[in-house]
Amino acid sequence: MNELFINWIANTPGYAAPYALAALGLILCERAGVLNLTAEGIMLVGALSGVGATLTMGGYPQLAIIIAMIMASLVSTLFATMTVLLRVNQVIAGLAMVFFCQGLTALLGNLFEWKNQPITGIGRIDVWPLSEIPVIGHIFFSQDLIVFLIIPIFYLVNRVLTRSMVGLRLRAVGESPEASDAAGINVTAYRFLTVMAGSALVGLAGAYISVASTKIWVDGVTAGRGWIALALVIFARWRPWRALLGALLFGAIESAMPRIAAAGIKVPQYFMLMLPYVVTLGVMIWVAWSKRGGATDEPGALGQPHVREERR
């Protein structure tokens, strides 16, 4: 039982990582006022690029992950062009991007024969001698590279967002693009580049799934995890650290499900499978409930295209 518990906790970060990274990328975009529904699609781009780059280079998974981030960022320029430059409805553009990426990745995966090709990927790193400490060693010092980097990444992004001039301008663009524009901030450039930066993180989440987790590409390998990341953004009310907490909660559920089954503990099958979605719904209701009265954390101009000198 004790071992079951330790294994469960030790495996949680690996399942939480894609949720956390994708949610962080989305928070970045949405704090700049761009409602980003593309996560599921951009994660697929990251996942395919990660496997494709590893196979093409015959190894170097760390480099492949960086390539995946760049590819995700490049594909997201299509979304940024549609929403920021052409001011297309962000919901429709986002959904269209998801379907586009699903088709594109399936097509390219087939064309280059990257499908069903196992890769070595990145594995666990034991930080010796800390990894030898009972319980704590297994949980905290025997994880993969990306999991170790998550706290620094979150710290860095949060720091930039809340404690730097760039972050202040980014948030201003998301709260009131008109005022930012009047203050001399280039709203279009800020939004365009933020979408690219945020999508790089979403792509990292996708690459984590294929390069660190499954170590194989199949069509639609992300299996809806992008949508859960989207719900996490609302759960976190656009705050990075809260998103990490929410991601850990989902990771813990996903890691617990097979372990409870493997231990032969009798819990109805479909109840377990339903659990993450029940939690998603519960959290949304809780957020909507607690929002009444107090000020909302939602960026003021979320989902609104900015047109200079346009009257609303």
Binding site: N11, V218, S255, P258, A262
Partner: peptide, 26 residues
């Protein structure tokens, strides 16, 4: 020990199930 993952093709869930089974001694 059988784990049903609730879908036909989700490598993340398949890996989670296989790892849990191996951790459990299979």
């Amino acid at each position: 020990t059988a784990i049903f993952i609730g879908t036909w093709a989700d490598p993340v869930k398949e890996r989670a199930a296989a790892e849990a089974l191996i951790d459990g001694g299979a």
